[in-house]
Design a binder for these strands. Sequence first.
DNA 1: CTAACACTGAACCATATGGTACAGTTTTCT
DNA 2: AGAAAACTGTACCATATGGTTCAGTGTTAG
Lengths: 120, 120
Amino acid sequence: MVQFSAARLDASFSALSDATRRGVLEQLGRSDASITELADTFHMTLTGMKKHVCILEQAGLVTTQKVGRVRTCRLGLHGLEEEAAWIEGRRQIWNARFDALDHVVEALKRKETRDGQSDR
Amino acid sequence: MVQFSAARLDASFSALSDATRRGVLEQLGRSDASITELADTFHMTLTGMKKHVCILEQAGLVTTQKVGRVRTCRLGLHGLEEEAAWIEGRRQIWNARFDALDHVVEALKRKETRDGQSDR
DNA sequence: CTAACACTGAACCATATGGTACAGTTTTCT
DNA sequence: AGAAAACTGTACCATATGGTTCAGTGTTAG
């Protein structure tokens, strides 16, 4: 089992919680882009887009490289593996809980039926 | 393909970006719990924990039900399917990009070698 | 009936977030 | 050299976040 780093998950889920930043990831999935190109796409100032890129960079989701006056942004080396793993772990427990819940619901139904017939 | 709702993803990734709330989900995965129990586990006031639970509830990740004076929290009906799907979609593009990148790197290496030999 | 319990709502606080404008700096084009 | 491009850093703003305290409200146990 993987050991999840709270700080990593904090950073990446927080980075993913903004629609603009998710959009940047999608655009970078199609091709690398400069800050200016990203800022144009999302109708935002350079300064504003730079902040988003910094956040994505700190979360390890993108890397950047400055050549001449242009900073090129691309998808980060480590993808979303840890995040995917965390969510998958939760989903398994989730499903197990609901299987169990089905049984509880069954039991409650039977109990209610019995109570309804015998009592009140 | 699923149509992702930006608002949904905003809410759930934002909810998941806090370690306390991820902890609450883990605890609820083991068993349902009251606000008081959760507040005790995370050494927090009732009011503080209530807020976290509200955020998780609005994100659809937990549901609650008040019986008498106790509000019981459990995992929400809709698990993390949309979030998992979004991340998986990204991961596929990620990997495709890196496969492509490998080829680019190869090409660059060959080009550099050639240039180094023939020119400058 | 009274006290304790479990929450709930409002107000407050410090800090973080998402955006802006403006004033540089470094590169590139002519 | 001079102008334009592409960032970068700082300061500013409004709002959101994560937490608290305090003062209720409804529920349950004795």
